[in-house]
Amino acid sequence: MVSAALERRRRLWLPEGQNNLMIIAADHPARGALRAGDRRMAMADRRDLIGRLRIALERPGVDGILGTADIIEDLLLLGALEDKIVLGSMNRGGLAGTVFEIDDRFTSYTAESIVRMGLDAGKMLLRIDPKDPATVRTLESCARAVDELAAAGLPAVVEPFLSHRVEGHVRNDLSPEAMIRAISVASGLGGTSAYTWLKVPVVAEMERVMRASTLPALLLGGEVPERPEETFECWQEALALPTVRGLVVGRSLLYPADDDVLTAVDTAVGLLSKGN
């Protein structure tokens, strides 16, 4: 598998003249998060998921994928990752719905394995729960990963949230003030931010929120929207902000309400040309 990975045709993270990235996200299953919209087990059919990913990756303007080793290696063996950016998802230990969800241990890729497999970047989730002491372990692990990826000259994509429990379930606070605080913490992780990117949701007052950091940021897609047109409009507005450099979207494009993956992906790609 390592030899196949190293033989893959790689491309630059951001080639000269390209301002934005379009990345397809597929790391949800490793956290036990299989829901897409009203389909509770949508991502449980691996062959179906891989098929949808192949459709998305073949569309013009799609730059790459974010995933865990199992998904990346399936696509690698199918030849679907040639000339694509591949981001390895690193901390998947905070399984959805568990009492230890905030303890997001690095149970998937490490910086060392990302380098060994010839991947192009690492992504980590950072949920900050002020009432859960497990938060500090995740903070420390993310800071170490930022340093290790930077030492290898690879981008570290950090996805920060301020989180809390509601009736036993972890919920992310998507208010502008909470996102500003989360972005501020994420931006300061590690001994250098030279290779750090952010992965953030589109929330209210995005212009004010994105002023919390000068780091480049990618927008995440989140849940499958009930009104996709409104979601696309919000993405387009956020893409016009100076530090926003593209999209990392999974379920919204892979499992749209009408199940038309091709059209959903093409619509999202079209927003990038209208953004920065």
Rank of each mutant, 00 (worst) to 15 (best):
M1H: 15
M1L: 13
S3D: 14
A4Y: 09
A4C: 04
A5R: 06
R8T: 02
R11A: 03
L14H: 14
P15Y: 03
N20V: 02
N20M: 06
L21F: 05
M22Q: 08
I23C: 00
I23A: 00
I24H: 02
A26W: 02
A26C: 12
H28P: 02
P29R: 12
L34C: 00
M41C: 01
M41L: 11
A44I: 01
A44S: 10
R47E: 10
R47V: 00
D48G: 00
G51P: 06
R52D: 00
L53Y: 11
I55D: 04
A56R: 13
E58N: 12
R59S: 09
P60M: 12
P60N: 12
G64T: 04
L66W: 00
L66S: 02
T68N: 06
T68K: 03
I71G: 00
E73I: 05
L76N: 13
G79R: 02
V86Y: 13
M90L: 05
N91D: 06
N91V: 03
R92C: 06
G93M: 11
L95I: 10
A96P: 01
A96Y: 15
A96L: 10
F106H: 14
S108A: 13
Y109R: 06
T110D: 10
A111K: 07
G118P: 12
G122S: 05
G122W: 13
M124T: 11
L125G: 02
L126F: 05
I128F: 14
T135S: 15
R137T: 08
L139K: 13
C142Y: 13
A143Y: 14
R144E: 14
R144G: 04
V146Q: 11
A151S: 13
P155W: 14
A156C: 09
L162G: 03
S163A: 15
V166C: 01
H169D: 05
N172W: 10
N172K: 12
N172S: 08
D173N: 14
L174S: 05
S175V: 11
P176D: 11
I180V: 09
A182V: 02
A182F: 05
I183R: 08
G188K: 11
L189Y: 13
L189D: 07
G191Q: 15
G191C: 09
T192F: 09
T192K: 09
S193K: 11
Y195G: 00
W197S: 01
K199V: 00
V202N: 01
V203W: 07
E205T: 08
E205N: 15
M206S: 02
E207M: 10
T214N: 04
L218G: 01
L218W: 12
L220C: 08
P225N: 07
E229G: 01
E229T: 05
T231W: 15
C234T: 11
C234V: 07
W235M: 10
A240Y: 11
L241R: 04
L241T: 01
V244L: 07
V244F: 03
V244D: 01
R245W: 06
G246P: 07
G250A: 10
G250L: 10
S252A: 15
L253V: 10
L253I: 10
A257D: 08
D260R: 14
L262H: 15
L262M: 07
T263H: 11
V265M: 09
D266N: 07
T267L: 14
A268S: 12
V269R: 08
L271C: 00
L272V: 00
S273G: 12
S273C: 02
N276D: 08
N276A: 11
